[in-house]
Measured scan of single mutants.
Amino acid sequence: QYKLILNGKTLKGETTTEAVDAATAEKVFKQYANDNGVDGEWTYDDATKTFTVTEKPEVIDASELTPAVTTYKLVINGKTLKGETTTKAVDAETAEKAFKQYANDNGVDGVWTYDDATKTFTVTEMVTEVPGDAPTEPEKPEASIPLVPLTPATPIAKDDAKKDDTKKEDAKKPEAKKDDAKKAETLPTTGEGSNPFFTAAALAVMAGAGALAVASKRKED
């Protein structure tokens, strides 16, 4: 009698068979294992007439167990938060979910874009303008004329002030004479000065007065 010990991944146990020799028993056991989907390494112990079949655990490639991950970057252009961060993800969709959660946790809500070549996400917050509040242009400074500094008044001594007054009066006198001369030139000519009769009478009076003066002097002599 021969014995078979099964150490399979899905089947474990023992069974026996009657055979004329070990070779015949081995054929029977291998057919049995094959029928039950057991495929492994076989050993035989002649002392105990025991066969053992052991399935090795399937070696799984690490790449099959853990999907390949890629590093993705997020650029934040927020109104109050600006910067960059990264995450590792199996695909862009997974990275996007992580980045949007990160942005939401930090109060950033804007327009999202993605560049597959650089594996970069960008979120930009738009500045909202309040309706009716149009931007006002800064007032242009008016052209200013530079002020001319005033010349301080120079105090005048009393004596100098009197001299100035005297000079002013002396300066006025010639001007007054000139005014009188002008008035004389502009006076109208009277009839006496221009009538020949009056001129002859005046000469006769003057001659008579002269003769009287000569006669009076002779009497005195």
Rank of each mutant, 00 (worst) to 15 (best):
N34D: 01
N34F: 02
N7T: 08
A25D: 01
D39Y: 15
E26F: 00
G37V: 06
A47F: 13
K12N: 11
L4P: 01
D46Y: 15
T10H: 06
D39G: 08
T15C: 07
V28H: 12
A25E: 01
D39M: 09
N7A: 10
Q31A: 08
T10V: 06
T48Q: 12
Q31V: 06
Q1E: 09
V28A: 13
E18R: 14
V28W: 08
T24L: 11
Q31E: 03
T54N: 07
A33W: 01
T52M: 08
K3W: 09
F51W: 01
A19S: 11
T17V: 11
D46A: 15
T24D: 06
A23P: 15
L11C: 05
L11T: 05
N7S: 09
A33R: 02
D35Y: 10
E55Q: 06
N7Y: 14
E55V: 05
T52P: 01
I5S: 08
T17Y: 10
L11G: 04
E18Q: 14
G40T: 00
K27C: 03
A22L: 03
G40S: 02
Y2C: 07
F29L: 08
T52I: 08
W42C: 01
V20P: 09
K12H: 08
E41R: 15
A25N: 02
T24C: 13
F29W: 06
F51N: 00
F51T: 01
I5N: 09
N36L: 05
F29K: 03
T52Q: 10
G40K: 00
N36Q: 05
N7F: 14
A47W: 12
A19P: 05
W42E: 00
Y32N: 04
K3H: 08
L4F: 07
Y44P: 01
T54D: 07
Y44N: 02
E41C: 14
Y32G: 05
Q31H: 11
Y32P: 01
K49I: 09
L4V: 08
K49S: 11
F51K: 00
L11K: 04
E14S: 14
T16L: 09
L11A: 04
G13R: 04
Q31N: 14
A47N: 12
K3D: 07
T24K: 12
A25G: 11
K3N: 08
N36A: 05
E26R: 00
E41I: 15
N34H: 02
A47E: 11
N34P: 00
E41L: 15
G37I: 04
Y32R: 05
K49M: 08
V38N: 01
A19W: 06
L4K: 02
D45V: 12
T54E: 07
N7D: 09
G13N: 04
D45K: 13
A19R: 15
K12T: 15
A22C: 06
Q1F: 14
Q31K: 12
F51D: 00
K30C: 01
T50M: 15
D45H: 12
T24Y: 11
K30G: 00
G13K: 03
Q1V: 11
V38P: 01
N7E: 09
D45Q: 12
Y32H: 06
D21E: 14
V53T: 07
W42I: 00
K9A: 09
V38I: 12
I5P: 00
Q31F: 05
Q31Y: 04
T50D: 12
D21H: 13
A23S: 15
W42N: 00
T54S: 09
T10W: 06
L4Y: 03
T17F: 09
A33K: 00
E18G: 13
T52N: 08
E14K: 10
T50N: 13
G13Q: 04
Q31P: 02
T54P: 02
T43L: 10
A22N: 07
T15W: 05
E18F: 14
T10L: 06
N34M: 02
V38W: 01
V20M: 08
D45M: 12
L6Q: 04
N7P: 02
E26Y: 00
E18K: 14
Y44K: 02
I5H: 11
V53Y: 02
T15K: 08
T43H: 11
Y44I: 05
E26T: 00
A47L: 13
T24G: 09
N34W: 02
T43K: 12
K3P: 02
Q31L: 10
N36Y: 03
A23R: 07
W42K: 00
K49V: 10
K12L: 07
L6M: 06
T15Y: 06
Q31G: 14
K12Q: 09
I5C: 09
V38D: 01
A22Q: 03
F29N: 04
A47T: 12
L4H: 04
I5G: 11
K3I: 10
T16A: 12
A47H: 13
L6A: 09
Y32M: 07
D39C: 14
I5Q: 11
A22D: 06
E55F: 04
K30E: 00
Y2V: 05
W42D: 00
A23F: 15
N36S: 07
V20H: 11
A47S: 12
T48G: 11
E14R: 13
T24E: 06
T10I: 06
K12Y: 07
K27Y: 02
E18P: 14
E18Y: 14
L6H: 03
K9M: 08
T16R: 13
Q1M: 13
L4C: 08
A23G: 15
A25C: 08
E18L: 14
F51S: 01
K30N: 00
V38Y: 03
A19M: 07
G40Q: 00
K9S: 09
D46M: 13
T15G: 07
T17I: 09
K49G: 14
A19H: 07
A25P: 05
K27N: 02
T54Y: 08
L4G: 05
D35L: 13
F51Y: 03
N7I: 09
L6T: 09
I5D: 08
F51R: 00
T48Y: 12
T54R: 09
V28L: 12
F51H: 02
A19G: 09
T15L: 08
E41S: 14
G13W: 05
K3R: 10
L11Q: 04
V53S: 06
Q1K: 13
T24V: 09
L6D: 02
A19T: 11
Q1L: 13
T50L: 15
E18S: 13
K27M: 03
T17M: 06
D35T: 13
N36W: 04
A23Q: 15
A23E: 15
L4N: 06
V38Q: 03
N36M: 04
G40I: 00
T52F: 07
T50A: 09
Y32W: 08
E55G: 05
L11N: 04
K12A: 10
Y44E: 02
V28P: 03
D39K: 10
T16N: 08
T52W: 10
T43G: 13
D45N: 13
K49C: 10
G8A: 08
G8Q: 03
E41M: 15
V38S: 02
N36H: 06
K49P: 06
T50C: 11
I5E: 11
E14F: 12
A33D: 00
D46R: 15
E26N: 00
E18V: 14
A25H: 01
K12R: 13
A22S: 09
T50Y: 14
L6Y: 03
T48R: 12
V38A: 03
E26M: 00
A25V: 05
L6S: 07
I5T: 10
T24I: 14
T43P: 01
N36R: 04
A22R: 03
D35N: 15
G8C: 07
Q31D: 03
K49D: 09
T24M: 15
E55C: 04
G40C: 03
D46P: 15
W42R: 01
K30S: 00
K9E: 09
A19V: 10
A47K: 13
F51A: 02
Y44C: 04
D46C: 13
A33Y: 02
A25R: 01
G40A: 03
D46W: 15
G37S: 07
E26A: 00
